[in-house]
Amino acid sequence: MDTAEKFDDKTPRSDTPASQSEGEQAMENSTRYPEQTIGSPYVDNAKMSMRDVDVFYGDKQAIHGVSLDIGKNEVVALIGPSGCGKSTFLRCLNRMNDTIDICQVKGSLHLEDQDLYDPKLDVVELRARVGMVFQKPNPFPKSIYDNVAYGPRIHGLANKKYDLDEIVETSLQKAGLWNEVKDRLHSPGTGLSGGQQQRLCIARTIAVSPEVVLMDEPCSALDPIATAKIEELIAELSESYTIAIVTHSMQQAARVSNRTAYFHLGRLVEMNDTETVFTKPEHDLTEAYITGRFG
């Protein structure tokens, strides 16, 4: 199993990890970044399209000119070693980076025709369309029902109690949690197990019917059984939602995603069909990473 990433991408850190192995050092020296991303980062039926995205934390550049598309109803996995900027990139997609004062995003990011960084766009509206599931399960310290009902309530999606009940039930069913919690909807969400909490968070996210769901290492804090459940869930959800998932587990990326993007030190090195990336990686760095030589 993968190991949990100890740092989140909020804190800028140095470009080169201190504990570089010698092999990695050699790799850095001998390999150059490709001028352009290798593979096929663009698709025809793009739900989200990003072009030349640069992200800065203060003076330090965390993302260098990343361009890629996320197709409708596909699952895109973002993989790469710690500190490669994949979480930072993901958080640009629903502007969660806005909360960090020193963070600056440049380039063009679109959700269908909507420019994400259009000053006229209300971030509340964007986040209702692009939902997010976080690394650590973070249910509100409220009841299971209130957790799921929170999004619909603040957006006024349900006027009657009956409608709200239905949204809560469907969301929990979609998240595969309904049968486990239907008898205790009003007990606290924090009382569930870790895996159940994460599925509750997924239910909470899909309760507002977003078009895109971003997942930032959703399984890194879970055991293998809970992970398997979430992965199953991702496969089911991809029928109705577009999903971008950051993961440290290559097996997970291989299992759940249609396409995989490999990030290295803030650059998008290679992006292709998942199968191609894992069986015939074109770039040396990608190959080194997926064969486990570093990362």
Partner: peptide, 27 residues
């Protein structure tokens, strides 16, 4: 108040005011 709660609420599209009133203040 743990930042994860804030992020969860913001990720759902709660405005700053709603994050404060619904989550930060009660906690």
């Amino acid at each position: 108040v743990p930042p994860s709660i804030r992020q969860a609420a913001m990720g759902l599209g709660a405005s700053n005011m709603q994050v404060v009133l619904h989550h930060v203040l009660p906690l």
